[in-house]
Design a binder for these strands. Structure first.
Length: 597
DNA sequence: ATAGGGTTAG
């Protein structure tokens, strides 16, 4: 539906709608103006309250109302409506209104164009955005710095990093428009979010020496990028360079810094930063609190998280949907699903509307506790509450059903997904493949794998792992090995987990020597064996009473600091003929540290 | 309250 709206916007532009009321043939490229354009003739139209537009139906109603007004509302009013519609994330409807406006001959302007291009960007359809720009350009409107910034953002959102960079360079080189802070930010943020942190840092450094000095927002974007790439020290370094240049960090920058440290579990450093904030009189906002609450929730410390909720209320920082969703996730992690449900109810009491994330969270909680029937009821409740299921809720529900071996219901849901134009992702395919394999349908799994490979989706290690595991469990390790050998050519490096599946299968049927060869092969391909690999091999040799071969692996494990597990250990002890001091000492070295004592 | 801006949740 999204894409269709964007495409139909272009069609309308190409069609007659766009040209209504325009003197095309006369060659006048300036916008037509109304005879009554002077302010004296314009009635006051500020009585429209755009802040009451909270959901799609409000926007629809208001649009109908504006269309039927006796005196045609100004383009400003229409732009206002488009703008609030974007704020409530109804991009397709905004584009629909844009189509209608063109059809009705409303004299759209550069602001309208920028909003429309932004909608295309947000729907990841930058091509339609370019089409809209082109047609405006023909009508004598030139895109300005805001429009180009929107396009740059759109290119990044569509993973067109090179194109975004080229456009930015062209703008600079040919002086197409004067770049400003917002455009610089779009570049730096886009580079960081697309994983190009170092080019982003280079850009910032170049800008520092020019008259386009980066501001605190630009530094924030870069700082966040450094954190997400695990460059904490560089992040601290950036913070101090920025301060030296006389720019002080604000609450967003601190929040980003705190998030980075929370990810690393460096909670002591977080405390230092929070103190630093209060010393600089920067108060924590709802996002900062949410980050801190999330850190506690991830450590399952719900008491501390609830205490923080109290503190934020005391400080008149109003908890939002994210706050409550974070708490719900924390309770679900602890398996306290009923407590999570209470949080959901409490947010409703406080006048906050749970969103699809809230439901997705509970859904996941119920499924993990194997309360699939309750999950299903909740799943049915979502559309009744006026919300739309997305890829994540479908994935969770399908996974939940499959975990109870309710395969046909899961597949039905997958079909439903397609019917509702919710696009499946890697998680969906991995779940489906895993389901097929667990149900013993390995042939179907292979053809399904073939199907998704043909769709241009790149299956990942988990995908292939699911199929290889299925093949092994169904006695088809030869097919599994073929697939394994094809992985590198598909850009996937097999890991120890995948090798272990096949090694395990070989051992299972007694082909221990063949398994041993595969282990050697895996090592020669640069994939290190892990504790599971060694334990499988050792147990297999021990089962065949080949103690000496098992002991070779014990030595290898000691060299690598890998531990053996209990059952392997007891098998070795059982087969020891004498009190072999050397062997006992060797085993002590590979023994899990907490059991040695 | 006419467009484009950095931090949080599934």
């Amino acid at each position: 539906m999204n894409r269709r709206a964007a495409v139909s916007a272009i069609n309308l532009i190409h069609g007659r709608g766009f040209l209504n009321g325009w003197s095309h043939k006369s060659g006048i490229l300036s916008p037509p103006f109304s005879l009554f354009s002077s302010k004296a003739f314009q009635p006051k139209q500020s009585r429209i309250d755009f802040s009451c537009v909270k959901e799609l139906k409000d926007a629809i109603e208001l649009f109908q109302k504006m269309k039927s007004m006796r005196r045609e509302p100004s383009i400003r009013m229409y732009n206002n409506l488009l703008s609030v519609t974007v704020k409530i994330e109804q991009y397709s409807f905004a584009l629909y209104m844009f189509d209608e406006m063109l059809r009705m001959g409303v004299p759209v302007d550069v602001y309208t164009m920028t909003i429309a291009v932004n909608c295309c960007s947000l729907l990841k359809d930058i091509k339609s955005g370019f089409a809209i720009m082109g047609l405006f350009f023909k009508r004598g409107y030139e895109p300005n710095v805001a429009t180009f910034t929107t396009v740059i953002k759109g290119l990044f959102l569509d993973h067109k990093v090179v194109e975004a960079g080229k456009l930015f360079n062209k703008i600079l080189r040919f002086g197409i428009c004067e770049p400003n802070d917002v455009m610089i930010l779009a570049m730096v943020d886009g580079l960081c979010k697309s994983g190009n942190v170092l080019p982003a840092r280079d850009l910032v450094r170049r800008l520092e020496r020019s008259r386009l000095r980066p501001n605190v927002k630009t530094y924030s974007a870069l700082l966040d990028g450094l954190h997400k790439s695990g460059m904490v020290d560089d992040a601290f370094q950036l913070l101090s360079t920025m301060t030296e240049k006389g720019i002080s960090p604000d609450v967003v920058m601190y929040s980003s810094m705190i998030q980075g440290l929370c990810d690393l579990g460096r909670l002591q450093d977080v405390k230092v930063l929070v103190n630093e904030m209060s010393n600089s009189n920067i108060s924590l906002d709802v996002v900062t609190f949410n980050i801190l609450i999330d850190a506690y929730c991830k450590e399952r410390k719900m008491k501390e998280a609830e205490d923080l909720l109290d503190i934020m209320k005391q400080r008149n920082v109003c908890p939002d949907v994210v706050t409550y969703n974070t708490l719900m996730e924390g309770y679900c992690l602890r398996g306290e699903i009923d407590k999570a449900r209470q949080v959901l109810d409490s947010m409703v009491d406080k006048g906050l509307k749970p969103n699809i994330v809230s439901y997705s969270c509970l859904l996941n909680g119920y499924c993990k506790k194997e309360r699939v029937d309750e999950a299903w009821l909740l799943f049915l409740e979502v559309p009744l509450k006026g919300m739309e299921h997305n890829t994540c809720t479908y994935n969770t529900m399908i996974h939940g059903l499959f975990s109870k071996r309710r395969f046909s219901e899961g597949w039905k849901l997958f079909k439903d997904m397609g019917a509702r134009r919710v696009s499946p992702d890697m998680y969906t395919y991995n779940t489906l493949l895993d389901g097929l394999c667990k149900n013993g349908d390995t042939d179907e799994a292979l053809s399904f794998l073939h199907l998704i490979e043909g769709k241009g989706v790149n299956p990942d290690r988990v995908t292939y792992g699911a199929v290889i595991n299925g093949l092994c469990k169904n006695g088809k390790h030869d097919v599994a090995r073929d697939l394994l050998n094809r992985l590198p050519s598909r850009g996937v490096q097999p890991n120890a987990r995948i090798y272990n599946m096949i090694i395990g299968a070989l051992c299972q049927e007694g082909s221990t020597e063949e398994a041993k060869c595969l282990l050697t092969e895996m090592q020669s391909r640069g994939c290190a064996a892990d504790d599971v690999t060694y334990n499988i091999m050792m147990r297999s040799f021990l089962k065949k009473k080949e103690l000496s071969k098992a002991i070779q692996y014990l030595e290898e494990m000691r060299e690598k600091g890998i531990s053996a597990d209990v059952s392997t250990f007891s098998m070795v002890v059982d087969q020891m003929q004498t009190e072999d001091d050397f062997l006992l000492k060797l085993m002590k070295d590979v023994w899990p540290k907490d059991i040695v004592s």
